[in-house]
Design a protein around this nucleic acid. Structure first.
Lengths: 156, 156
DNA sequence: GTTATTTAGCACTCATACAGTGCTCTTTCA
DNA sequence: TGAAAGAGCACTGTATGAGTGCTAAATAAC
């Protein structure tokens, strides 16, 4: 259905929040949840996953919590999504499993291209870009690679 | 999960097949299925939907079936997907319903940008492009707008 | 060392939507 | 009139997403 899961959304929200904190400071799940209003346990799981993937780091006990580990500028959207909902496979065709119709399917190549292009969009966006966009500024890579600006072939 | 549904895949396969037939000739579901190996009833539903959306046209009775109505060059991927699985909303944030965290969410803008960019990729790809790719050729718009070629910031 | 705080680990439930199928009706051509 | 083909209708099973409860282990403060 070509949509991000809540896990990814919550994860990105939490990461944006953590990235905005004082560097080095730990913020607890309780505190993040009280700000964002997301389901507590779910966010905890998301953060745990991000912690295991070394995107954030955790400390237990009073005063503990999470803080950024990977700089926002180096954290791609595709990485976050891969951690929270598995690797991005826009089409089964393009996935490792391969498609069931390999022999006769004429769209495989084309779909793979599309999937690849979407993948690259996600690769190209960093957490920093996401946050930046929220503050009004345009993401860094717009000038390099926005297909939109060149493209008016839309039919829909 | 950021993936196309089978409906879309089957639909695109069938459309590619129809687009490759003699212009004007009707091809029955039975025949398409016998070639593609997709589940019969499911493909029938998909084609019915495409017919109602005037992408293909149908005739009943012996010798009947489906044929293209919208030229492959004018049929965008996003249109097909919209018909077969509803409008593309990469993130709920970006959807019409709006997100539940509007007040505090700092990633909304950024996500909307990403969603928009993905949407444009899908807008920009036509059935003709998909088919072309399968025959070895590069899609028409690669030279205009492939972000990939400019972009090596991938972290993942 | 006891206590409070906080992450870690584990498994289950509920809701949604995707995938697939059976049967009958209507249209159309031979 | 009969056979072929799409149209209409609704249901079932499965996967995955979303959300929750409880307990254990670590750590800091007292």
């Amino acid at each position: 259905m070509l949509r991000l899961t809540k896990r990814s959304e919550y994860g990105l929200m939490a990461l944006a929040f953590l990235a905005a904190q004082e560097p080095g400071v730990y913020t607890s799940v309780r505190e993040i949840v009280s700000r964002l209003g997301t389901p507590r346990r779910l966010l905890a799981e998301v953060l745990k996953a991000l912690s295991q993937a070394k995107v954030v780091e955790a400390t237990r006990g009073p005063g503990g919590g999470y803080r950024m580990r990977t700089p926002a500028e180096e954290l791609s959207l595709s990485r976050v999504i891969a951690i929270l909902e598995g690797p991005v496979n826009v089409a089964r065709c393009a996935s490792e499993d391969g498609c069931d119709f390999q022999e006769i399917c004429t769209i495989q190549e084309g779909i793979a291209q599309v999937a690849d292009r979407i993948k690259r969009v996600l690769d190209g966006y960093t957490l920093a870009d996401i946050v930046r966009a929220g503050s009004g500024a345009a993401p860094v890579l717009d000038q390099l690679s926005d297909p939109a600006s060149h493209q008016d072939r839309s039919v829909a």
